[in-house]
Protein backbone atom coordinates (compact mmCIF):
# COMPACT_ATOMS: atom_id res chain seq x y z
CA UNK A 1 0.00 0.00 0.00
CA UNK A 2 1.16 3.54 -0.76
CA UNK A 3 2.06 5.77 2.10
CA UNK A 4 -0.68 8.15 1.05
CA UNK A 5 -3.37 5.46 1.13
CA UNK A 6 -2.06 4.21 4.45
CA UNK A 7 -2.48 7.67 5.96
CA UNK A 8 -5.95 7.96 4.49
CA UNK A 9 -7.02 4.69 6.03
CA UNK A 10 -5.55 5.65 9.39
CA UNK A 11 -7.32 9.00 9.48
CA UNK A 12 -10.60 7.39 8.34
CA UNK A 13 -10.35 4.79 11.14
CA UNK A 14 -9.60 7.44 13.72
CA UNK A 15 -12.59 9.50 12.59
CA UNK A 16 -14.80 6.42 12.53
CA UNK A 17 -13.80 5.45 16.08
CA UNK A 18 -14.22 8.97 17.28
CA UNK A 19 -17.77 9.24 15.92
CA UNK A 20 -18.84 5.82 17.17
CA UNK A 21 -17.56 6.51 20.68
CA UNK A 22 -19.34 9.89 20.72
CA UNK A 23 -22.47 8.06 19.71
CA UNK A 24 -22.00 5.50 22.49
CA UNK A 25 -21.60 8.38 24.91
CA UNK A 26 -24.69 10.15 23.52
CA UNK A 27 -22.83 13.34 22.69
CA UNK A 28 -25.13 15.62 20.67
CA UNK A 29 -23.19 18.76 19.79
CA UNK A 30 -22.27 20.86 16.78
CA UNK A 31 -18.80 19.32 16.92
CA UNK A 32 -20.14 15.78 16.68
CA UNK A 33 -22.48 16.91 13.87
CA UNK A 34 -19.47 18.20 11.92
CA UNK A 35 -17.66 14.93 12.56
CA UNK A 36 -20.56 12.94 11.07
CA UNK A 37 -20.53 15.27 8.05
CA UNK A 38 -16.88 14.43 7.45
CA UNK A 39 -17.35 10.73 8.00
CA UNK A 40 -20.47 10.43 5.81
CA UNK A 41 -18.73 12.22 2.97
CA UNK A 42 -16.18 9.41 3.01
CA UNK A 43 -18.71 6.65 3.46
CA UNK A 44 -22.33 7.33 2.61
CA UNK A 45 -23.39 3.80 3.56
CA UNK A 46 -22.91 4.08 7.35
CA UNK A 47 -26.59 3.95 8.21
CA UNK A 48 -25.85 3.94 11.96
CA UNK A 49 -24.20 7.33 11.53
CA UNK A 50 -27.14 8.71 9.55
CA UNK A 51 -29.34 7.64 12.48
CA UNK A 52 -26.96 9.26 14.94
CA UNK A 53 -26.90 12.42 12.86
CA UNK A 54 -30.70 12.72 13.08
CA UNK A 55 -30.45 12.28 16.87
CA UNK A 56 -27.86 15.04 17.06
CA UNK A 57 -30.09 17.42 15.10
CA UNK A 58 -33.09 16.87 17.32
CA UNK A 59 -31.02 17.24 20.49
CA UNK A 60 -29.42 20.54 19.53
CA UNK A 61 -30.83 23.41 21.57
CA UNK A 62 -31.62 25.43 18.39
CA UNK A 63 -33.86 22.63 17.10
CA UNK A 64 -36.85 24.06 18.88
CA UNK A 65 -36.47 27.39 17.08
CA UNK A 66 -38.37 26.87 13.82
CA UNK A 67 -36.44 29.51 11.88
CA UNK A 68 -33.09 27.96 12.75
CA UNK A 69 -34.44 24.49 12.12
CA UNK A 70 -35.52 25.57 8.63
CA UNK A 71 -31.98 26.84 7.88
CA UNK A 72 -30.31 23.74 9.34
CA UNK A 73 -32.48 21.33 7.38
CA UNK A 74 -32.17 23.28 4.15
CA UNK A 75 -28.42 22.86 4.65
CA UNK A 76 -28.97 19.14 5.19
CA UNK A 77 -30.93 18.89 1.93
CA UNK A 78 -28.11 20.63 0.08
CA UNK A 79 -25.56 18.30 1.69
CA UNK A 80 -27.64 15.28 0.65
CA UNK A 81 -28.08 16.53 -2.89
CA UNK A 82 -24.32 16.66 -3.38
CA UNK A 83 -23.88 13.17 -1.94
CA UNK A 84 -26.84 11.55 -3.70
CA UNK A 85 -25.44 12.60 -7.05
CA UNK A 86 -22.38 10.46 -6.37
CA UNK A 87 -24.33 7.50 -5.04
CA UNK A 88 -27.82 7.62 -6.42
CA UNK A 89 -28.71 4.14 -5.17
CA UNK A 90 -28.17 4.65 -1.45
CA UNK A 91 -31.20 3.82 0.69
CA UNK A 92 -29.88 5.73 3.71
CA UNK A 93 -29.54 9.00 1.94
CA UNK A 94 -33.01 8.88 0.40
CA UNK A 95 -34.30 7.98 3.86
CA UNK A 96 -32.45 10.93 5.37
CA UNK A 97 -33.87 13.25 2.72
CA UNK A 98 -37.44 12.14 3.47
CA UNK A 99 -36.78 12.70 7.20
CA UNK A 100 -35.38 16.19 6.63
CA UNK A 101 -38.38 17.17 4.54
CA UNK A 102 -40.81 15.78 7.10
CA UNK A 103 -39.15 17.80 9.86
CA UNK A 104 -38.80 20.90 7.74
CA UNK A 105 -41.20 23.62 8.97
CA UNK A 106 -41.77 24.90 5.42
CA UNK A 107 -40.95 22.23 2.84
CA UNK A 108 -40.84 23.18 -0.86
CA UNK A 109 -42.34 20.19 -2.69
CA UNK A 110 -42.30 21.84 -6.10
CA UNK A 111 -38.55 22.20 -5.77
CA UNK A 112 -38.23 18.55 -4.75
CA UNK A 113 -40.22 17.45 -7.78
CA UNK A 114 -37.91 19.48 -10.01
CA UNK A 115 -34.88 17.87 -8.37
CA UNK A 116 -36.18 14.37 -8.77
CA UNK A 117 -36.96 15.05 -12.44
CA UNK A 118 -33.32 16.07 -12.88
CA UNK A 119 -32.11 12.93 -11.14
CA UNK A 120 -34.33 10.81 -13.36
CA UNK A 121 -32.93 12.56 -16.40
CA UNK A 122 -29.50 11.29 -15.31
CA UNK A 123 -30.73 7.78 -14.58
CA UNK A 124 -34.22 7.29 -15.97
CA UNK A 125 -34.80 3.84 -14.55
CA UNK A 126 -33.62 4.49 -10.99
CA UNK A 127 -36.21 3.02 -8.69
CA UNK A 128 -35.11 5.13 -5.69
CA UNK A 129 -35.82 8.17 -7.82
CA UNK A 130 -39.24 6.86 -8.85
CA UNK A 131 -40.11 5.84 -5.33
CA UNK A 132 -39.09 9.22 -4.01
CA UNK A 133 -41.06 10.90 -6.79
CA UNK A 134 -44.23 9.10 -5.66
CA UNK A 135 -43.52 10.23 -2.10
CA UNK A 136 -43.08 13.85 -3.19
CA UNK A 137 -46.27 13.69 -5.23
CA UNK A 138 -48.23 12.31 -2.28
CA UNK A 139 -46.89 15.11 -0.07
CA UNK A 140 -47.80 17.72 -2.68
CA UNK A 141 -51.36 16.46 -2.63
CA UNK A 142 -51.40 16.52 1.19
CA UNK A 143 -50.11 20.07 1.26
CA UNK A 144 -52.93 21.43 -0.84
CA UNK A 145 -52.06 20.91 -4.50
CA UNK A 146 -55.00 19.88 -6.68
CA UNK A 147 -54.79 16.06 -6.71
CA UNK A 148 -56.21 15.55 -10.18
CA UNK A 149 -53.84 18.10 -11.74
CA UNK A 150 -50.88 16.54 -9.94
CA UNK A 151 -51.88 13.03 -11.04
CA UNK A 152 -52.47 14.08 -14.60
CA UNK A 153 -49.05 15.74 -14.73
CA UNK A 154 -47.53 12.55 -13.40
CA UNK A 155 -49.32 10.56 -16.08
CA UNK A 156 -47.92 12.86 -18.76
CA UNK A 157 -44.48 12.52 -17.18
CA UNK A 158 -44.62 8.74 -17.65
CA UNK A 159 -45.60 9.25 -21.31
CA UNK A 160 -42.46 11.37 -21.79
CA UNK A 161 -40.29 8.84 -20.02
CA UNK A 162 -41.65 5.93 -22.05
CA UNK A 163 -41.22 7.86 -25.28
CA UNK A 164 -37.62 8.44 -24.29
CA UNK A 165 -37.06 4.78 -23.48
CA UNK A 166 -39.80 2.26 -24.00
CA UNK A 167 -37.94 -0.25 -21.82
CA UNK A 168 -38.30 1.98 -18.74
CA UNK A 169 -40.04 -0.41 -16.41
CA UNK A 170 -40.46 2.10 -13.61
CA UNK A 171 -42.30 4.43 -15.96
CA UNK A 172 -44.64 1.68 -17.18
CA UNK A 173 -45.27 0.63 -13.60
CA UNK A 174 -46.02 4.13 -12.43
CA UNK A 175 -48.30 4.60 -15.41
CA UNK A 176 -50.25 1.49 -14.41
CA UNK A 177 -50.77 3.04 -10.98
CA UNK A 178 -51.98 6.32 -12.47
CA UNK A 179 -54.19 5.01 -15.25
CA UNK A 180 -57.34 4.20 -13.19
CA UNK A 181 -57.56 7.78 -11.95
CA UNK A 182 -56.82 9.06 -15.45
CA UNK A 183 -59.68 6.96 -16.80
CA UNK A 184 -61.99 8.29 -14.16
CA UNK A 185 -61.04 11.90 -14.91
CA UNK A 186 -61.40 11.55 -18.64
CA UNK A 187 -64.72 11.94 -20.38
CA UNK A 188 -63.41 9.80 -23.20
CA UNK A 189 -62.61 6.46 -21.60
CA UNK A 190 -62.45 4.72 -24.98
CA UNK A 191 -60.01 7.31 -26.26
CA UNK A 192 -57.69 6.91 -23.27
CA UNK A 193 -57.74 3.12 -23.60
CA UNK A 194 -57.07 3.34 -27.34
CA UNK A 195 -54.01 5.50 -26.63
CA UNK A 196 -52.78 2.95 -24.09
CA UNK A 197 -53.30 0.13 -26.55
CA UNK A 198 -51.41 1.97 -29.27
CA UNK A 199 -48.55 2.66 -26.88
CA UNK A 200 -48.40 -1.03 -26.00
CA UNK A 201 -48.45 -2.05 -29.65
CA UNK A 202 -45.70 0.43 -30.47
CA UNK A 203 -43.55 -0.98 -27.71
CA UNK A 204 -44.24 -4.59 -28.67
CA UNK A 205 -43.33 -3.98 -32.29
CA UNK A 206 -40.27 -1.96 -31.34
CA UNK A 207 -38.92 -4.66 -29.07
CA UNK A 208 -41.02 -7.83 -28.69
CA UNK A 209 -38.52 -9.41 -26.31
CA UNK A 210 -38.93 -6.64 -23.77
CA UNK A 211 -41.55 -7.72 -21.25
CA UNK A 212 -42.80 -4.31 -20.04
CA UNK A 213 -45.44 -3.75 -22.66
CA UNK A 214 -46.65 -7.37 -22.46
CA UNK A 215 -47.13 -6.97 -18.71
CA UNK A 216 -48.87 -3.68 -19.16
CA UNK A 217 -51.21 -5.27 -21.69
CA UNK A 218 -52.11 -8.00 -19.20
CA UNK A 219 -52.78 -5.36 -16.64
CA UNK A 220 -54.91 -3.37 -19.05
CA UNK A 221 -57.02 -6.52 -19.50
CA UNK A 222 -57.68 -6.62 -15.78
CA UNK A 223 -59.18 -3.16 -15.62
CA UNK A 224 -61.55 -3.66 -18.55
CA UNK A 225 -65.21 -3.36 -17.69
CA UNK A 226 -66.56 -6.28 -19.70
CA UNK A 227 -65.45 -9.66 -20.95
CA UNK A 228 -66.40 -8.49 -24.43
CA UNK A 229 -63.68 -5.81 -24.19
CA UNK A 230 -61.21 -8.32 -22.81
CA UNK A 231 -62.01 -10.67 -25.66
CA UNK A 232 -61.37 -7.89 -28.18
CA UNK A 233 -58.06 -6.90 -26.54
CA UNK A 234 -56.89 -10.51 -26.61
CA UNK A 235 -57.84 -10.94 -30.28
CA UNK A 236 -55.91 -7.73 -31.09
CA UNK A 237 -52.93 -9.12 -29.26
CA UNK A 238 -53.14 -12.42 -31.13
CA UNK A 239 -53.35 -10.65 -34.49
CA UNK A 240 -50.28 -8.55 -33.64
CA UNK A 241 -48.29 -11.60 -32.60
CA UNK A 242 -49.18 -13.41 -35.80
CA UNK A 243 -47.84 -10.47 -37.78
CA UNK A 244 -44.61 -10.44 -35.77
CA UNK A 245 -44.13 -14.17 -36.15
CA UNK A 246 -44.60 -13.94 -39.88
CA UNK A 247 -41.49 -11.78 -40.03
CA UNK A 248 -39.41 -13.73 -37.59
CA UNK A 249 -39.93 -16.41 -34.97
CA UNK A 250 -38.83 -15.41 -31.50
CA UNK A 251 -39.40 -16.58 -27.97
CA UNK A 252 -41.44 -13.92 -26.23
CA UNK A 253 -44.17 -13.53 -28.86
CA UNK A 254 -44.58 -17.32 -28.95
CA UNK A 255 -45.06 -17.49 -25.18
CA UNK A 256 -47.45 -14.55 -25.34
CA UNK A 257 -49.48 -16.25 -28.06
CA UNK A 258 -50.06 -19.31 -25.89
CA UNK A 259 -50.86 -17.06 -22.92
CA UNK A 260 -53.39 -15.13 -24.97
CA UNK A 261 -55.19 -18.31 -26.00
CA UNK A 262 -55.22 -19.59 -22.43
CA UNK A 263 -56.67 -16.27 -21.22
CA UNK A 264 -59.24 -16.29 -24.00
CA UNK A 265 -60.23 -19.83 -23.07
CA UNK A 266 -60.73 -18.80 -19.45
CA UNK A 267 -63.09 -16.01 -20.49
CA UNK A 268 -65.14 -18.22 -22.72
CA UNK A 269 -64.62 -21.95 -23.17
CA UNK A 270 -65.96 -21.72 -26.75
CA UNK A 271 -63.64 -18.93 -27.86
CA UNK A 272 -60.60 -20.98 -28.74
CA UNK A 273 -60.92 -23.33 -31.70
CA UNK A 274 -59.53 -26.84 -31.81
CA UNK A 275 -57.03 -25.74 -34.40
CA UNK A 276 -55.82 -22.92 -32.15
CA UNK A 277 -55.45 -25.35 -29.29
CA UNK A 278 -53.34 -27.67 -31.44
CA UNK A 279 -51.28 -24.64 -32.44
CA UNK A 280 -50.59 -23.93 -28.75
CA UNK A 281 -49.31 -27.47 -28.22
CA UNK A 282 -47.16 -27.08 -31.27
CA UNK A 283 -45.67 -23.83 -29.99
CA UNK A 284 -44.92 -25.32 -26.56
CA UNK A 285 -43.11 -28.14 -28.31
CA UNK A 286 -41.00 -25.64 -30.26
CA UNK A 287 -40.34 -23.53 -27.17
CA UNK A 288 -38.92 -26.54 -25.37
CA UNK A 289 -36.11 -26.74 -27.89
CA UNK A 290 -35.76 -22.97 -28.45
CA UNK A 291 -35.50 -22.14 -24.76
CA UNK A 292 -34.17 -25.25 -23.09
CA UNK A 293 -33.58 -23.47 -19.76
CA UNK A 294 -37.34 -23.27 -19.26
CA UNK A 295 -38.04 -26.66 -20.76
CA UNK A 296 -39.83 -27.89 -17.63
CA UNK A 297 -42.04 -24.88 -17.46
CA UNK A 298 -43.30 -25.45 -21.00
CA UNK A 299 -43.67 -29.16 -20.24
CA UNK A 300 -45.77 -28.37 -17.21
CA UNK A 301 -48.02 -25.98 -19.10
CA UNK A 302 -48.38 -28.54 -21.88
CA UNK A 303 -49.49 -31.27 -19.47
CA UNK A 304 -51.93 -28.92 -17.80
CA UNK A 305 -53.44 -27.75 -21.08
CA UNK A 306 -53.73 -31.28 -22.44
CA UNK A 307 -55.75 -32.23 -19.39
CA UNK A 308 -57.84 -29.10 -19.63
CA UNK A 309 -58.46 -29.20 -23.34
CA UNK A 310 -58.58 -32.96 -23.69
CA UNK A 311 -56.20 -32.91 -26.60
CA UNK A 312 -54.12 -35.95 -27.35
CA UNK A 313 -50.69 -36.18 -28.93
Amino acid sequence: MHEESRQKVASYCALNNNVFSSKAASVFTHETLDLTTRLLKDNTELHTIWNYRRDIFTHLPEWTDLGTRQTMLEGELQFLLELIKSNIKSYWMWNQRVWALTELPKPNWELELGLVAKLLALDARNYHGWDYRRYVVSMMKKSGADPSTVDHNEFVFTTDQINRDCANRSAWHNRSKLLPAELERSEDREGVLATEMSMIMNAIYTDPEDQNAWLYHEWLLDIQESDGDRNRLLRDKIAAIRELLELEESKRPLIELVDAFVALDMLDAQAVTGEEKRECMDILERLKSMDSYHRRRYQDLETQLRRQWNTSN
Binding site: D165, C166, N202, L244, L247
Partner: peptide, 21 residues
Protein backbone atom coordinates in the same frame (compact mmCIF):
# COMPACT_ATOMS: atom_id res chain seq x y z
CA UNK B 1 -32.79 4.92 -32.99
CA UNK B 2 -35.00 2.79 -30.78
CA UNK B 3 -36.62 5.89 -29.26
CA UNK B 4 -37.35 7.36 -32.68
CA UNK B 5 -38.80 4.08 -33.92
CA UNK B 6 -41.02 3.78 -30.86
CA UNK B 7 -42.24 7.36 -31.04
CA UNK B 8 -42.59 7.57 -34.83
CA UNK B 9 -46.10 8.16 -36.08
CA UNK B 10 -45.11 7.81 -39.73
CA UNK B 11 -44.13 4.14 -39.49
CA UNK B 12 -46.63 1.33 -39.56
CA UNK B 13 -46.30 -1.10 -36.68
CA UNK B 14 -44.83 -3.87 -38.80
CA UNK B 15 -42.38 -1.37 -40.28
CA UNK B 16 -41.22 -0.57 -36.77
CA UNK B 17 -40.50 -4.24 -36.23
CA UNK B 18 -38.65 -4.58 -39.54
CA UNK B 19 -36.53 -1.54 -38.88
CA UNK B 20 -35.73 -2.52 -35.29
CA UNK B 21 -34.77 -5.96 -36.48
Amino acid sequence: SKEEVFASTALKLIEKRKLMR
